[in-house]
Design a protein around this nucleic acid. Structure first.
Ligand SMILES: [Zn+2]
Ligand SMILES: [Zn+2]
Ligand SMILES: [Zn+2]
Ligand SMILES: [Zn+2]
Lengths: 151, 151
DNA sequence: ACATTAACGACAATCATTACAATATGATTA
DNA sequence: TAATCATATTGTAATGATTGTCGTTAATGT
């Protein structure tokens, strides 16, 4: 079977870009941290461990490129930095996030769930939806344990 | 009937803050531009027209305070600046946004629409939802006119 | 009037991101 | 092979939004 990185390489080639060593190192860090939501700086530091000669500007450019190609999505949780999240392969839409206001944990929801809502928006507002961003803020299951009935 | 600004004044007082002239000027700019999504700089320039002596830091401080009190919501459309949006009075949740990728227009959806989805998330992920952020990216009705069937 | 404290305004500092200029890499062609 | 051209990289400087500092002002209570 073709590896994930091979397919990303093809995506780059289709768009006339090359998978340079720096880009490969960056992508591989993203793959290894698929669960996390890394900032550009985070990615830079992690890539540097394997490729110490890489420059911060290159990481920024690579992330920008990957965003353009929809390999990653750029998100913002309001803490002053952009974060980069690998898009599930073949997913039409970006996944959702649960941000805990107690402990700061960020969990993901891969299910779309918005089908009906999007149909309504398309029809009622005559808006052709291409993508979405949905984040819930609240108390995660870990933090909510024990005090179920508190408001 | 009590005016909107009166009620905001009370909210401030309840939290032991005063509605100083600078804060009042800032709130009144927000009320006059309820449809827009102003950045801190935008607000600063508009407030300056009426109160030229106001400082940028004060505007930032006021917006931060209003965010804390949930009078406004701070949002980020990925263009590098935070924007501030008056919350509808009495609304439990923040409204949604339609961002046009053609013309950049930002329209609002005041209807909640997420009731069912939130129920599912609460139940399946055991996550107690306090608020949400939902933004759709796509082609607005103005830009979509005439070429309905294009993908 | 004096003390206390919240809030201001001007400006400096910070920090993420972008722009720049010089160099390197790699393919293409004379 | 050597010259050429395009793309990519690096380190650094510049930018721009936001936050911090600090001396001053305004309101409140004694
Ligand atoms: Zn939590
Ligand atoms: Zn994610
Ligand atoms: Zn449009
Ligand atoms: Zn809005």
């Amino acid at each position: 079977m073709e590896s994930r990185i091979e397919r990303i390489k093809k995506q780059l080639h289709n768009a006339k870009y090359k998978l340079t060593p720096q880009r490969e190192a960056t992508v591989s860090v993203l793959l290894e941290h698929e669960e996390d939501h890394l900032s550009a700086e985070d990615v830079y530091l992690l890539v540097k461990e394997k490729s110490p000669e890489i420059g911060l500007a290159t990481v920024y450019r690579t992330l920008e490129l990957l965003t353009e190609l929809k390999v990653v999505d750029k998100i913002n949780f309001g803490d002053g930095v952009s974060r980069f999240d690998l898009r599930q392969e073949g997913a039409a839409h970006f996944h959702h996030h649960l941000v805990c206001i107690e402990c700061g944990a960020v969990d993901e929801i891969q299910e779309d769930l918005l089908g009906d809502v999007e149909q309504i928006v398309e029809d009622r507002w005559n808006f052709r939806i291409k993508d979405h961003r949905l984040t819930f803020h609240g108390i995660c299951s870990r933090c909510g344990e024990g005090n179920e009935e508190k408001e």
